[in-house]
Computed example of a mutant assay.
Amino acid sequence: MNRYSDLTKYPKLFKNSYWGSFQVDKDPPEKEIVSNRNRFSEEYELISFICSERPKVGSKLFDHCELYKSKNGFTFITSPYDENSNDAERFGLTKYLKLYHPASNTYIKHFNSKIEFNKFLKNPES
């Protein structure tokens, strides 16, 4: 039984993410999303998937969240269906390639340390 993660060049990296756990035979992903996942991994030099934590704020922006350890710190993404670009800017996120579904935009933010990310979780506007 193939999962979305198996379609990427980096199945171990994505296998524990929510996106990576979907079964291919039930609903195959768009080729563009798989290609974007490969590019994301290479561009940000990802090492491992960390978690799916999200800030606890009243914004629909934080949906389908993923945090990865990279060679230079930590990379956080969120891929909401219902989003507000003003929220993304307010929280210091930048629009990126679509990494979840063609109908959802992905936003990204880099952190130098896990401590920095944990502070963001508590207060994303600081």
Rank of each mutant, 00 (worst) to 15 (best):
E45K: 14
L97F: 02
V24S: 06
S70V: 07
E83Q: 13
K15W: 03
K98H: 09
E125H: 10
L46R: 03
Y10M: 07
N2A: 12
R90N: 14
V34M: 02
F49T: 06
K98F: 12
F74S: 01
L61Y: 11
D82R: 13
N118Y: 06
D25I: 14
F14S: 04
F22V: 02
N36K: 00
L93D: 06
D87L: 11
F62N: 06
F40D: 01
E116Q: 01
C51V: 03
F117L: 05
Y44K: 06
N38W: 06
P124W: 05
E66A: 13
D6G: 15
S41I: 05
T106G: 00
E125C: 13
Y68F: 12
D27V: 07
G20R: 03
F14A: 05
K122Y: 06
S35L: 12
R39C: 09
K9Q: 12
S21K: 13
E89G: 01
I108R: 08
E116C: 01
Y44G: 04
H110A: 08
V34S: 01
R90H: 13
K56C: 13
Y18P: 10
L13S: 01
D27S: 10
K71E: 05
D27P: 05
I47Q: 15
R54M: 04
F74M: 01
R39F: 03
F76Y: 10
H101A: 13
K69T: 04
C65L: 00
K109T: 07
E45P: 01
F111G: 06
E32D: 10
N123R: 15
F22D: 05
S21T: 14
L61I: 11
E125R: 09
L61K: 14
I115T: 10
E125P: 10
L61D: 14
N112L: 08
H64S: 14
L7M: 12
P11K: 09
A103E: 04
S126P: 05
N84M: 15
Y107D: 00
F40K: 00
Y96V: 08
S35F: 12
L121H: 02
L67Q: 15
R39L: 08
E42D: 07
F76E: 09
S41K: 07
R54T: 07
Y81H: 12
K69Y: 08
S70G: 15
S48Y: 03
S59L: 14
N38Q: 04
K71W: 04
K114V: 00
S113P: 02
K69M: 14
Y4G: 01
G73V: 02
F117W: 07
N38R: 02
H101C: 08
K60W: 14
D82L: 11
K12P: 00
L121P: 07
H110Y: 04
S41Y: 09
K26L: 14
E42F: 06
N36P: 00
R3Y: 07
K60T: 15
N118C: 07
E45W: 06
L93R: 05
I47F: 06
I108G: 13
K114M: 14
S48N: 08
L121N: 03
H101L: 12
D63A: 10
Q23N: 12
Y4D: 04
R54N: 11
L67T: 08
F40M: 03
S17Q: 03
K95G: 11
Y4A: 01
Y96D: 07
S52Q: 10
L97G: 00
R37A: 08
N84H: 11
P55K: 10
E30T: 03
I108M: 12
V34I: 11
K15M: 10
Q23P: 09
H101F: 14
T94L: 13
